[in-house]
């Protein structure tokens, strides 16, 4: 048994909506799989089925060798879950929350207490340990929820959009924590709307669309298919769009997108900095005036557009914006 998670043809319907449409995948023990997709792709539904919170309408799945339907109770002793929305008790302190979780994993009073303190320390919450969670910031709540998933040191972890809603700094801290975690040899399934998060944390990425897998591979494989960076170029006048397109075609490795109303052209390239240098050199030679030029990583929208030919339905704009959040992200590359 080398697969920590197996899913075969999972189906889940909500009335007329098919949230999971025959989703199949495996996660080898000790590896990290990221489910990448926009809002409504079915990521949370997949996590809920695998963590026994939801019964699938079709297909079957196992986690740590236990069937999610037949063997739910035993399965739960082997998993830790941090859901899309922090599941913590506001009136309890951070320490009390974690102790309660330890008791419910049946660790016993003493170990639950010790484990709670240990995790609070590790997540930088030691100072806030004895304050009610009510007064915690969003980032602190996320961390206490994540700590809750780790109380019993479970071999298989599920994190549903762990960094959504965090500011760039809190996100970077969270990524460090998660990297450390999986370095210890655990199996992790994580969902995300951010290409860079999948890139940073996952061994394998599965792109999900309408409850189906549309691509799977290592982050590098995926980026090769989608193109590495984007050059985004804004010219000063409409008559300069065409010469600029010609210069860009020279380095493009995929379809070029032009937004005439904003005088902006976007194109995927492989060696970003070098490509940008060459393009700017040529534009200068041709006398094309440039208002703005820069590199950015592919957003979820770019991934979708390339893989499916359509834009990510729900989160396109949001993912696009966070794709450009500036220094913090830059530093994480």
């Amino acid at each position: 048994m080398s697969d920590a998670i197996t899913a075969e043809g999972l189906v889940k319907r909500y009335g007329g909506v098919t949230a999971l449409d025959g989703l199949s995948f495996t996660v080898p023990r000790g590896t990290v799989l990221a489910l990448l997709g926009p809002n409504g792709a079915g990521k949370t539904t997949a996590v809920r089925v695998l963590t026994t919170l939801l019964r699938p309408d079709g297909g079957r799945a196992t986690v740590a060798g236990h069937d999610v339907v037949e063997d739910a109770r035993r399965l739960r002793a082997h998993i830790g879950l941090s859901g899309q929305y922090a599941a913590v008790d506001e009136h309890l302190t951070g320490a009390e929350n974690l102790e309660m979780v330890g008791r419910l994993y049946h660790l016993g009073a003493k170990r639950s207490k010790a484990r709670a303190r240990e995790l609070l320390e590790r997540f930088g919450l030691a100072d806030a340990a004895d304050r009610p969670v009510k007064g915690y910031s969003g980032g602190m709540r996320r961390r206490i929820d994540l700590a809750g998933a780790l109380v019993a040191d479970p071999p298989v972890l599920f994190l549903d959009e762990p960094s959504t809603g965090l500011d760039p700094r809190a996100r970077a801290a969270l990524w460090d924590t998660v990297s450390d975690l999986v370095a210890g040899g655990g199996t992790l399934l994580l969902t995300t709307q951010y290409m860079e998060e999948a890139d940073r944390l996952a061994d394998q990425v599965m792109v999900v669309d309408h409850g189906r897998a549309i691509a799977r591979g290592t982050p590098d494989e995926l980026k090769d298919r989608v193109g590495g960076n984007r050059i985004e170029l804004t010219v000063t006048g409409a008559d300069e769009l065409e010469p600029a397109r010609q210069a860009l075609a020279w380095v493009a490795v995929g379809a070029m997108r032009t937004a005439p109303e904003s005088l902006r052209i976007t194109v995927p390239v492989t060696d970003g900095p070098e490509a940008l240098r060459r393009v700017l050199g040529r534009l200068a030679e041709d006398g094309v005036r440039v208002r703005d030029a820069g590199l950015r990583r592919p957003t979820l929208d770019d991934v979708y557009l390339t893989l499916t030919g359509h834009r990510a339905s729900g989160a396109g704009e949001q993912a696009r914006q966070t794709g450009r959040t500036g220094q913090a992200e830059e530093a994480l590359r």
Binding site: L53, R76, V101, L104, Y105
Partner: peptide, 11 residues
Amino acid sequence: KGIFDRFRSLP
């Protein structure tokens, strides 16, 4: 709140 989800994911 999400607290019942937490409970239900525990053994």
